[in-house]
Design a protein around this nucleic acid. Structure first.
Length: 319
DNA sequence: ACCTGTCAAGTCTGG
DNA sequence: CCAGACTTGACAGGT
């Protein structure tokens, strides 16, 4: 089985390369003319795109094919203050160029709208804002010319004192999404409410892929054993153009168990490999660590010491 | 150059 | 019913 590694959004190795610069609403409002405000926003957006392209070059140089694009690429994109700003026109050429590069190099890109994006809130305005946020991410992926194999990963959402009703509300709201969004949406188990088994059931019902987050599963598992249904989780990716994906991070410490540590423990991955080995199926691993790409490199160094692992290249292994 | 409080967004808990 | 925690990179204002 072959495993490809990737990381999230930004590099700690490349200097002055933030893909998520922004501006506060208050500071933006200090600029008098609307034209000048939009120019400021556009300039930040283009800088973010330029740095994302630099990240792509960096990734390609290190054989890193799996990467999550930041959600903050376009500053204040879905905030009401930018309602009349047509950001897409400002960046569409750059997006296309980046997308071509990504495709030509076999990148497997995704995005992860953050925890304000909730499809199961009982509050209609929250759901509406969330759909707007998903549409924003969609425009970026579409603008890059990426097909529906470029996924949008979200969580199920809150429990609102009734998990069953909230799961049902997710299903109802999911049905409201455009087919473009439906094709891209994948769900991840979270660390507090919806367990891997909960999310698997939902994904099977909706026929969408599931991302397994191993760290979240340790935090929130109702004592069930992932080995019993890992095959079913991977099977949610059958028919997809890409292999299944898992998220991997280590707890910061005992006290802050749910927080992400700087690096990931190789032993956690090795334990998972032992489970996955029997399925003998390729998959992607998204490293979620404070040290970002450096954490990935550090993990690779650890894996080089493991006799049964061979390296295909810098960020891909065969077991 | 460095430090600290604050930032668009939601939910949950505890008082 | 409201304040604070959660979590996170970056801003912005200060030294």
């Amino acid at each position: 089985m072959r495993i490809s590694f990737g990381y999230v959004a930004m590099s700690v190795v490349l200097k002055d390369c933030s893909p998520s610069r922004t501006i506060t609403v208050q500071n933006l409002s200090k600029i008098d003319s609307e034209k000048a405000r939009f120019a400021r926003l556009s300039s930040i957006a283009r800088e973010n795109l330029k740095n994302t392209q630099r990240l792509f070059f960096h990734n390609q140089a290190h054989d890193i094919k799996v990467f999550r694009i930041t959600s903050k690429l376009i500053p204040l994109a879905t905030h009401p203050v930018t309602e009349n700003w047509d950001w897409f026109v400002e960046v569409k050429d750059e997006l296309k160029t980046m997308g071509d590069y990504a495709r030509n190099n076999g990148f497997r890109l995704s995005a992860h709208p953050d925890h304000f994006t909730l499809l199961n809130s009982p509050r209609e305005e929250v759901t509406e804002a969330s759909i707007r946020d998903l549409e924003y991410h969609l425009r970026i992926l579409d603008g890059m010319g990426l097909d529906s194999s470029a996924k949008l990963v979200i969580h199920v959402g809150g429990s609102y004192n009734n998990k069953e009703a909230s799961l049902e509300r997710f299903i109802q709201n999911y049905k409201l999404l455009s087919s473009e969004l439906k094709q891209r949406l994948v769900l991840e188990n979270d660390d507090k409410i919806y367990t891997a088994r909960d999310v698997l059931g939902l994904c099977q019902q909706l026929k969408i892929p599931m991302v397994l987050d191993i760290h979240h599963h340790w935090c929130n598992n109702h004592n069930d054993n992932i080995g019993e249904y890992l095959e079913d989780i991977f099977a949610t990716w059958d028919g997809e153009a890409r292999p299944p994906k898992i998220h991997l991070s280590s707890p910061k410490d005992e006290k802050h168990f749910r927080s992400h540590a700087d690096d990931v423990e190789a032993s956690f991955l090795l334990n998972f490999l032992a489970l996955a080995k029997q399925l003998d199926r390729d998959f992607d691993v998204m490293i979620e660590a404070k040290n970002k790409d450096l954490a990935l490199f550090n993990l690779m160094d650890e894996l080089k010491k493991v006799p049964y692992i061979s390296f295909i290249d810098e960020a891909r292994i065969e077991v």
